[in-house]
Design a protein around this nucleic acid. Sequence first.
DNA 1: TCGATAAGGGTGCATACACACCTAAAGGCG
DNA 2: CGCCTTTAGGTGTGTATGCACCCTTATCGA
Lengths: 151, 151
Amino acid sequence: MDVECTCSALRMAARRLSQAYDAALAPEKLSVSQYAVLSNLAKREAEGPPSMGELAERLGLDRTTLTHNLRPLARDGLVALVADPLDGRSRRVTLTPDGWAKRRRCQPLWRAAQDHFDRSFGTEPSRALRDSLAAIARHAEGTAAPVPEKD
Amino acid sequence: MDVECTCSALRMAARRLSQAYDAALAPEKLSVSQYAVLSNLAKREAEGPPSMGELAERLGLDRTTLTHNLRPLARDGLVALVADPLDGRSRRVTLTPDGWAKRRRCQPLWRAAQDHFDRSFGTEPSRALRDSLAAIARHAEGTAAPVPEKD
DNA sequence: TCGATAAGGGTGCATACACACCTAAAGGCG
DNA sequence: CGCCTTTAGGTGTGTATGCACCCTTATCGA
């Protein structure tokens, strides 16, 4: 694996690790991607239900990707989209009771996967890695589009 | 971005960085994922055309994912699948002349993206990151499936 | 030689992801 | 108030990804 492309290395690692986490969450038939949505909504419940745009921002997802990703979750009754009474354009995303229950059941499964990774990779290196990855996600934010430059 | 899930952090970083690399490759209408395929085939040409399974292994991809991913490349005439004369089951993947040309045109675009990343993240940290990611990809290899355990 | 098993691949399906483009509602201004 | 611009989202399309399941060809033992 003499991958010299950082992006490809990142994608490869993400694929592999996703498979491990997905396997851990398999008993609840939830993907790590879906777990991330439920978990984010749960952890930041105190701030009130986020709009689509806010949630997409938090998850580092394209706004339209979130629209697509929420479809199976809404179909299964884990999340619900409610119209904002103050802004007819905005739709706020909430966890349903089933969504809360699912998240509670999945958390130990996720924890097991995370612990398993930390044990083999090292807890401290793992934390450092997350920091690096967060920095990349934050920094590459505007890198893709070199500013439209209208006129 | 207080992501505590290593897998989600990895996926998020991969999404963002992919957007940056994709933007760099946009003039040639090639994704970084597709570039990785062409580049891998080109760099290891001396070993002779790999079978589907071998190439999937190299790329850290599921075998069936590679089947799907090769479709647009084959459609556009960048790669070709040739039957193995010694094994009727095996199909070997080769770069076509167009594939070679495309790879040559894309290389400087990829290089620019990689250099841009290295400048902001640091060349040495970048190399260390690739090593860590390669280790994760290699190690998480069998983690997902805990061995079938037949009977 | 033949039948069972293993190995190499492909298909169908569902989710994940983002871009181009569209719609509708909100805000601002004459 | 009516018009224009901005803003929040959705849709359609195409690639990316992997699992369950299927087919075909090798391989090997009786």
